[in-house]
Each structure stands twice: as C-alpha cells, then as structure tokens.
Write a protein that binds this DNA or RNA. Structure first.
Length: 859
RNA sequence: GCCCGGGUGGCGAAAUGGCAGACGCUUCUGACUUAAAAUCAGAUUUCCGAAAGGAAGUGCCGGUUCGAGUCCGGUCCCGGGCACCA
C-alpha cells in the first residue's frame, strides 16, 4: 500500500513504510527455519548523551544493505541491535548532576532508539538488549564465575592512575599531560588491588587461530603484534652478594650474552630494595618517585631521554664470569618478561643510548659482513669476541648458547609474550558487580569442603594489614547480583569504588550454599552455612558486557543459560561483523578470549566468535578534521533526515567512498544523491502521481538496455557481497541515466531495477514497488527473490582493442572477439591514428592480449 | 617511539599489471521560463595549439616490466591504535 503523495515526499513515505514494517514484524528472525541462516552484526553502540553520531549510520547502513540483500537471496537473517550501556560518561554525568546513571542511560537509549528507527534499519527489535539490564549482566557475572572456577581470574596489586587531590582513580583518558582532566591536578601511578584475567594462558591459541578468520590483514597483524610472541631465553645471573640468590632475565638475543656490559631492573622489581647499597638508596627513592608519574608509553619511547640510577650491586655473567653492574631504569617494564634485562649496548638501540649517557662500556659481539658497522648494530652477522662461539651465525649461536646454559642449569629457552594479563576491575559504580565475597581462611576451608563447590584449585587471596582474605563466589543460582543504590557516585576516597560506602550491602552474613545475604548488623541467621563476608567493591570494565552480547542475541530471553544450546547451534556466530577499526585489538581480543573459554566449557560449538570482520572508516567533518563538539563540525543524522530523508542519507553515506576509508563530509554530495533518487522517482511516477506513462507491460526493451540491466544486476550483487557499496551505487546511476534516455521501458525492467535499489533506499523501493503494482503474493518488495542475471545477455561479439606503440595509447577500435594476432596487427596498420606512429619504424616486439591490447615495440 | 593504514583533477572518488580520472559534486555555457528554481543538453587535470592534434601527469627518488596509480626498495607527509574512552 503505497502512499498517495504526488511528489517524492520522503517525509510522508519514510514513516509510512517504517510503521508498515513494524506492524508486519517484517524483520523478525525465527529461531526455527528451513532457510539457511545469515547472522549480520553491528558493533552495538554506547548510548552517549550526545545522541547518534553520523559514523554510526555509516556502518549500520552497510550491514542493513547486507541484511536486506541476504533476505532477498533466501536467507533467514538475524540482524539485531542493543546497547553497550555501562561506561564512564554516564558515571561522570552522575557525579556532576547526582542523577542515577540508570536514569541517564535509559533516557539516552530512548533517544538513540528514536534516531536509529528513523533510519529504517531492518533490526529485529524483539531481540533488543542492554548490558546494564540485570537479566543480561546476570550472565556476564555467570561467565566471570566460570573464569574464576577455572583459575583464570586472580587478584593482584596493579598500578593505576591516582589523583591525590581528587582522591580518586582516573582512567587513562582522564589524565592529560600528567594532570587530571578535571581540575588539572597532578597524578601518580599507585598500586591497588585489582582483578586480573589470565588472558596470557590463551596467548598461543589467540595467535594461532587468527589464521582461520576472514579479517582485514591489518587487524590480524595488529593482534599478532599485540600478543607479541617472541622466542628467547630466561637466563640466571648469579648476584655478587650470593645471599640474594640469582637474577632472572629474559632476552630474545642470548647470542649477544658476551656483549652484556650492565643489567637493568624495572624500578618496581622486587629485588631492587635488597640490592641497592646504602649510599644509593636516596637516589633510588627519588628516581622511583619520578618514574611513578610516567606511563609505559613515555617510559619506553625510543625518542625520549633514558634515565636510571646505579644500584651499587653487581651480577656475574654466566658465560664469562664477568662482573656486571646492575642499574635501575624505567625503560624496563615490570610487566614484560621478568622485569629485568641484560643490556647489550652494541646491539640494542635503547641500551646503546643508555650506555652512552652513563659512560658504560660497549662491547661488539656481532660482526656485519662488511667492515665496521656503526653501533648499535642490529643487523645480521656472525659472532665475535665470544670465546667458543666466534664465527657462528647469530641464529645458530642463539640456540647453541641457550642449550649450553640449560645444560648448566642457568638458563632455558622460553617463549615470551608482550600480551599482559587483562586488568579487569574498576573502582567505579556503573559496572557489573563482581559475584564475589571475601571471607577468612577458616570459613573458606568450610566452603571448600562443601560438595559440589565451584572453587578454583588454588584459592584467590589477598593480604591486608597482615590478614588474609579469601575470595568466595556467589553461587550461580543467586545471580544476578544487583548493583545497589548509592548515596554518592564519587569514589570512596580510599581508592575503593562508591560501593564501599554501602555498608548494608557490603558487610554481610553470607550463606555459602545459597548465596543469600543478610546485613552484618543483623543477628547472624541460624545454620552453619552462614559466614561473615565482605562483598567485592570493584566493578567490571565496560568490555565485560561487549565480550559476549553476540551470543545473547541468538536467544535474548533465555533464563536457564546465556542462550539455549539450540539457539547457539542454529545461529552460531555472526557471519559478518562490522565496526570501527579502533576496536581492532582490545574488544576483539577480549571477546575472542571469552569465546574460547566458553568453547572449552562446551557452551559454544565453535572456537572463534567473528569469522568475518570489516571495519568502516571514519567520517570527518566538512573541514577534513575529526568531528567534535569543540570544532563545531558535527553533523547530526536527524538534520539530514529532516531535510533530505533517510534514503538519501543512507545512499549518501554509502556513495561517499569505500566503506573502510576515512572520508570528509560534503553537503553538496547529499544534493547529488538526492537528485538521483528524485530521478528514479520521476522515471516511475508521472506529474499527477500516476505511474509514468513510459512504463508499459507491452514494451520490449532495447538490447542495450537489457544488457546494461544485467550488467547492473551482476555488479550490484557482486559489490554488495564485497561491501563495495559506492561502486554499486555508481552502476545504478549509470543505469538510471540510460533509463532516462529510453523512450519506453518495460514494467519488468523497472521492477528489477527497484529490487536492486531497495536494500540501499528501502523506503523508496517499497513505495515505487507498490505503485508499479507489486507482484503476485508480494505486498512488499522484500519478499521478492533477488533478480538473477542472464550471462547470455552479457556476451558480446565485439570488444574494444586498444593499440599501444611503445606502451603509449595511440588508438582503439571495436574488433571481433577472438581476432588473430595477424589480423590485429593489420588493423593497427590500417588505423588512421596508429599508422603514423608505425611509419618507417621496425617492429621489434609484439605484445598481444586478445580482446584487450596490442602493444607494438618499435625502433 | 612502536604497531597499522593512507597520499590520484577544484572536491568525494573509479580503475583483474593493459585507454588514468567511470559515477557524483563544483564551476561555466546553452535550452526551457516574463523571471527564478527545478529539469534537460554540453564543457570542466595541466601545458602547447585557432583547430586537428601533441606533450606531461596518480606525494617524492629509484627499480622490475613490452606496459606501473597498481609490484619491489627507499623517502617525505597525513591519519588511526597503544592495554582504565568506547
């Protein structure tokens, strides 16, 4: 049922079809279907207060085109949307205004939903979800319990940004040039008790399985680099003060061991205090203070000045017994390797710079093939100054020296990863509470004895003021553990989250078997299952909810599992996942990790979550700069929908350039695609709103038009599959230009074209389809099978042959397909534009590519 | 700094190693109109030329090839990520 409007009145047409789809539940995905399934997923948005950014509809339009196209191709399509709704901005807003983050988040979701609906995306809204919904985070907490039970979650002291003035932990983003974003106060690195997930246990698989996924190469390479596998050796250096034992270092270059002239410990290394001689203590203390204010990025920057202090202590080089001074410098990180290195200034840039600065000796042990290389030399070569190994190629020496050290028990080959365990807790309010309580040793022992407990092999503990606290999980049956209301959203001031102030919730009598809780101020309930406990006050980071939402979409109402096994088996994982490249590492790596854990548990049937991945590019402002409020170059989708309509916006976003490119916004381009849609309208609809008189059932289209139609069917189909929407649109424009020139056109041809256009401009597609009379049994264009192209019509008997002389284009001519080389040559000689360039010349070489090119190399 | 991208007309771009600039925008000219808008037709890389035509041209330097925007080496510039922004 098309509208009655006379002109292309998108303000009437678009809402009309949107309510049609909604009433008919047109995009409902059925969990039981005989059709093949296709699951296409967008990275779900964080519902910020600013509303939808123009970058959102870019990626969402791309997946919507795919979803609509796949439906027309006969697939049962799952195309869901939801809200990644925990996060820092809602919390900051709450701190500022006192509004509950849930209230603020709900309002933002309403706004986002309105905007997304106005864009006409074919989402199955019956599967909408939000990570902040307790029925959702119940399962986020459940997954955490599995990680905990498997020993993949532990507690450790980790450095975080701390602002003494604000008495709060700050996110990296809230620290600008070493000052707090709010107030500009100094900040420092401070150790706090944190939950950490053992992602490193999966490093090898996360690396190896990258070969199985269809992802952009750049993203795979970034993940590879992030995991950062390197083979080397752990080597023990005996300390001169034998009472302190040995120093364990990691190196990727054991072959350069004879060039080690000093050693470096990270300032956080546990041995530093014991090592440092009395006269060096003061230096160390002040140095530590300085480096505490630096990020890892600043510490390891090759361009930054290196600094360090001498500890006063020495170690013994295991290969030659030499005394090696031990330095403490922050260019070595505690989080990588063993937090200690052997420095080889002749063959490492940072070591070299450091050695020059502090006048430490430099010994070359790798010779380049030719002459004296400038130091540091990091290239290929053979060993020198290494008694017993001289002349050996360095990769061989690496193996041999490592083996020799291993034989003596002072070293072993090791694989090391840059990947560090995942810091998984935040000292914030607006996140999933950990389903964990802390109890004393005796109560933990009681719980451990209980049959069917889900405790890890070794207990997770921390010690505070000499007392050990043991982590006890809240039983899965007691989930969700609700986020309690708080008086203030400001952190407690001690580094703990605002939850630490909710005494009633925090200090409890805890039932070990059921997970029930009673405030500790009440009388202890009867029964020996009740123990005194303190709840975990940390919350989970935003990543938690986004690590598994794609699974929940398959069965969003499931209450016995995160999704039913049947749904997980039917829908599997997304066939296509589209989102920004800014997620290339973190989100995608974390989700892969969780998925593999769930795979190992038998919850999901496949080991990788995202088989095919694509990144949409960023849309810049009109000025070519990143869109931002402060620059005043932000474009809102609402404005464009008002002025030109959703179909125009969708088409424009896709026409702008390749989906993965970064592209500036151009208001003139909007007019261009709008004109194109107007032109399509005029080809279908006459002045009074009637069907255009040039369209008729009795018309036979010209061979050229039919050929072009089939070329267009092929190109649009191929381009959608390849996510090349810009060139698909060009082809449709070319076809429309041809339509315009044709005096008559068959209804059939026009309808076929509308089918091609419909995934891009669905409202206009439906409207014009309806006006042309639809087709039997197809009130909506979406129910019509995608057109097939006829290869026979694409075949032609003539092709254009290009003539080149010495590689330069000199002319071209239509020739018969399969023309012989001799005939091609004769044609070239006869060609008025080519012949002059051949006159009086000797042809030295003929390159003939039939149907393409004839290149004549002449003297 | 490290990792990952990208540099093609006035602009967004297109081009299985084979006609560089499709398609769209912009600007200009013309038609229609009393006029304007809309629409339609044409032109729109640079240089030489009245034209026909010719030459140069895909950030820069070099290489491979009959032929390079495309492949290789180097270099400059711009952008994204860097573990608590999402």
């Amino acid at each position: 049922m098309a509208t009655k409007c006379i002109d292309y009145n998108f303000q009437e047409i678009e809402p009309h079809w949107q309510s049609f789809w909604e009433q008919n539940r047109s995009f409902r995905a059925d969990n039981a279907s005989s059709k093949p399934k296709y699951y296409v997923l967008d990275m779900f948005p964080y519902p910020s207060g600013a509303g939808l950014h123009i970058g959102h509809p870019e990626g969402y339009t791309a997946t919507d085109i795919i979803a609509r196209y796949k439906r027309a191709k006969g697939f049962n399509v799952l195309h869901p949307i939801g809200w990644d709704a925990f996060g820092l901005p809602a919390e900051q807003h709450a701190v500022k205004t006192g509004t509950h983050p849930a209230t603020n988040t709900a309002a933002n979701i309403v706004n986002f939903k309105r905007q997304i609906k106005a864009l006409g995306f074919s989402y199955d809204w019956e599967r909408e979800l939000a990570t902040t919904d307790s029925q959702y985070y119940r399962w986020t907490q459940w997954i955490f319990l599995q990680l905990f039970a498997k020993g993949l979650a532990y507690v450790d002291e980790r450095p975080v940004w701390w602002c003494p003035e604000l008495r709060t932990v700050l996110a990296n983003e809230e620290v600008i040039d070493g000052k707090s974003e709010v107030g500009g106060f100094p900040v420092e690195r401070r150790n706090l008790r944190q939950w950490v997930l053992r992602i490193t246990a999966y490093a090898e698989r996360l690396l190896a399985d990258l070969k199985d996924v269809d992802w952009p190469d750049s993203t795979k390479r970034m993940q590879e680099a992030w995991i950062g596998r390197s083979e080397g050796a752990e080597i023990l250096f005996q300390l001169e003060n034998t009472a302190l034992g040995a120093l364990k270092i990691f190196t990727t270059r054991p072959d350069t061991l004879f060039g080690c002239t000093y050693m470096v410990l990270a300032p956080e290394h546990p041995l530093t205090d014991a090592l440092t001689t009395t006269e060096q203590k003061a230096d160390l203390a002040s140095y530590r203070k300085k480096s505490a204010g630096k990020s890892d990025l600043e510490r390891t920057d090759l361009a930054k000045d290196k600094s360090g202090v001498f500890s006063g202590a020495y170690a013994i080089n295991p290969v030659n017994g030499q005394r090696v001074p031990i330095w403490i410098a922050d260019y070595v990180l505690m989080g990588y390797g063993t937090g200690a290195i052997m420095a080889v200034p002749a063959h490492d840039e940072r070591d070299h710079e450091f050695a020059i600065k502090y006048a430490l000796p430099i010994v070359q042990v790798i010779a380049s093939g030719a002459g004296e290389p400038p130091l540091p030399y990091v290239g290929d070569g053979k060993l020198i100054n290494s008694p017993g190994y001289d002349g050996m190629a360095w990769p061989d020496a690496k193996k041999t020296i490592t083996a020799d050290l291993a034989a003596r028990g002072v070293g072993k080959p090791t694989v090391n990863y840059k990947l560090r365990d995942w810091l998984f807790s935040r000292q914030r309010y607006w996140g999933e509470p950990f389903p964990i309580v802390w109890v004393n040793a005796a109560d933990y022992a009681t719980a451990k004895r209980a049959p069917g407990n889900t405790l890890p092999e070794s207990p997770v503990t921390f010690i505070k003021d000499g007392v050990a606290h043991y982590a006890l999980p809240v039983p899965a049956s007691a989930l969700p553990l609700h986020l309690p209301d708080v008086q203030s959203y400001l952190p407690s001031g001690t580094g703990e989250s605002p939850l630490a102030n909710v005494t009633e919730w925090l200090e409890i009598w805890f039932n070990v078997a059921t997970g029930a809780a009673v405030p500790a101020t009440h009388v202890r309930p009867l029964g020996d299952q009740w123990v005194h406990a303190r709840r975990e006050t940390n919350t989970m980071p935003q990543w938690a909810g986004s690590c598994w939402y794609y699974l929940r979409f398959t069965d969003p109402a499931a209450d016995q599992a995160l999704a039913s096994p049947e749904a997980l088996r039917y829908w599997g994982v997304p066939d296509l996942y589209v989102g920004g490249a800014e997620h290339a590492v973190l989100h995608l790596l974390y989700a892969r990790f969780w998925h593999k854990v769930l795979f190992d548990l038998g919850v999901v049937p496949q080991s990788e979550p995202f088989t095919k991945l694509f990144h949409q590019g960023i849309i810049l402002g009109e000025d070519g700069e990143k869109m931002s409020k402060s620059r005043g170059n932000v474009v809102s989708p609402d404005t464009i929908i008002q002025s030109h309509g959703t179909d125009t916006l969708r088409l424009y976003l896709m026409f702008l350039g390749p989906l993965d490119a970064m592209k500036p916004w151009n208001p003139n381009g909007i007019e261009g695609v709008h004109r194109f849609l107007q032109k399509v309208w005029r080809e279908c609809v006459g002045r009074e709103g009637e069907v255009n008189a040039k369209i008729a059932d009795t018309v036979t289209d010209s061979t050229e038009l039919i050929k072009l139609l089939h070329e267009t069917i092929k190109k649009v189909g191929d381009d959608i599959e390849g996510l090349r929407f810009n060139t698909a649109i060009s082809q449709m424009m070319i076809f429309t230009n041809a339509l315009q020139k044709a005096p008559h056109v068959s209804r059939r041809t026009m309808q076929t074209f509308l089918q091609l256009l419909a995934p891009f401009a669905p409202h206009l597609g439906e409207e014009l389809w309806g006006r042309l009379g639809g087709a039997p049994g197809a009130a909506t264009i979406m129910n019509v099978p995608w057109p097939q192209f006829d290869a026979a019509t694409l075949h032609s008997s003539e092709v254009k042959l290009v003539f080149q002389v010495n590689g330069k284009h000199r002319g071209d001519q239509m020739v018969a397909v399969g023309l012989s080389e001799a005939d091609a040559l004769a044609t070239a000689h006869a060609h008025p534009r080519v012949a002059p360039h051949l006159e009086g010349k000797t042809i030295k070489r003929i390159v003939y590519v039939p149907g393409k090119i004839l290149n004549l190399v002449v003297e």
